[in-house]
Structures are given as C-alpha cells and as structure tokens.
C-alpha cells in the first residue's frame, strides 16, 4: 500500500524534475528559468521525503531542510543579480546577456 504510494511519489518527482529541466531549456525569461530551477529543487525534495518514508529514517527530512535553505539563499542572490541585469540591459531575455562585461 505505502510502497506503491512511495513509488508513485518518486515517479511524480521524476516527471516534475523533467518538466523543470525542460522549462530551463525552452524558456527565455530569466525569472521563469529561475522558477523552473526551483521546480527541479522541489522535485528532488519530494524524492528525498519519499525515500525517507520508505526507509523509515529522518535523514531525508534533514536533507530537504538544507535544500530549502540553499534554495532560499540562491533565490535571494539570483533575484538580486536579475535586478542588476535588468538595470543594465532593460530586458530579461537571457539571449541579451551575452557579454561577460559591459
């Protein structure tokens, strides 16, 4: 019963991760790409929680905690970079950011 639930949770995590990766490939807006990365991180969290349920331990939960911390820090720094980029280029299209320095 729970075994199949865990399995389906991991499958869902795979599909969500793929969708996130697809978004990173296909979207052009920096912020959307960013959100797709968050989606991928969340898919990984789901896998962690499912594995930790399946094994009956709590290590997965702690790892999710760390993933969330890193994601929050990453979002703060990333959005600051996005704001700085937008100030220089007036666009959020990733193709516009093709110089290392300007």
């Amino acid at each position: 019963m729970t075994g199949s639930l865990v399995q389906h949770a991991v499958l869902l995590s795979v599909v969500l991760f793929t969708l996130g990766a697809l978004g990173v490939f296909l979207r052009r807006n920096v912020i959307t790409i960013f959100m797709c990365i968050e989606l991928m991180l969340n898919a990984v969290n789901l896998a962690f929680v499912a594995f930790s349920r399946s094994l009956g331990t709590f290590d997965g939960q702690v790892l999710v905690f760390f993933v969330m911390t890193v994601a929050a820090a990453e979002a703060a720094v990333g959005l600051a970079i996005v704001i700085a980029l937008h100030r220089h280029r007036d666009t959020l299209d990733v193709d516009a950011f093709n110089l290392l320095k300007w």
Binding site: G3, V6, L11, V14, V15, T18, R53, S54
Partner: peptide, 21 residues
C-alpha cells in the same frame, strides 16, 4: 528531457520500494 524522464521513470517503475514502518 523525454529520454531522461523515460529512462529514470523506467528505473523507478521497476524498483521495489520498502513500504517502511
């Protein structure tokens, strides 16, 4: 992306998960 999903999905679908406590 589709290939990745199918590959990992097949692995997960074949794996046997302990149902835990």
């Amino acid at each position: 992306a589709a290939a990745f999903a199918v590959q990992v999905g097949l692995v997960v679908a074949r794996a046997r998960f302990a149902s835990g406590p």
